[in-house]
């Protein structure tokens, strides 16, 4: 058996409450607010308390998909990434860097946002990157 608690940060609102995810045999089974966290001191809202529930939802995406003849086909990572990279490169070469645009995300980590804007700016050569801070 393996039971662990993992200290992390709530992914919902901008409060950034600290919480422990309970992990029993590699399944996230519960949420416990962190008592000593500066933001929430042992409290959470209803979203935070149930944050573990969507993690194992059967609707989660588990395989890369590429549209073929109008519908999605499951493909390997190699195929999905090659396809994406070559199409992005092609758009850039044919129509210029300004023809490619990126939406960054308020839901992913700082590190991932950093990489995405670096990818847009350094690899594709465009400043067309925005996210829904405005929303």
């Amino acid at each position: 058996m393996d039971y662990r608690t993992v200290l992390t940060t709530c992914p919902y609102c901008g409060c950034g409450c600290g919480l422990y995810l309970e992990v029993l045999d590699n399944k996230v089974t519960g949420t416990i607010p962190c008592k000593t966290h500066p933001m929430n001191q042992g409290k959470l809202c209803v979203k935070g308390w149930n944050v573990h529930e969507f993690v194992h939802n059967p609707n989660r995406l588990t395989c890369p998909l590429v549209r073929k003849n109008g519908s999605f086909a499951e493909v390997s990572w190699d195929e999905a990434l090659d396809y994406t990279a070559s199409r992005l490169k092609a758009a850039k070469e044919r129509h210029g860097s300004r023809s490619v645009a990126f939406m960054a995300s308020a839901k992913v980590t700082n590190e991932e946002n950093y990489l995405l804007q670096k990818f847009a700016r350094a690899a594709i050569g465009t400043n067309n990157i925005d996210h829904c801070a405005r929303l």
Binding site: R4, T5, Y20, I32, C34, K35, T36, H37
Partner: peptide, 12 residues
């Protein structure tokens, strides 16, 4: 006590 915070833990 880990990561500077106190939380529940099963010591195995």
């Amino acid at each position: 006590k880990e990561h500077g915070q106190i939380g529940p833990h099963l010591f195995q």
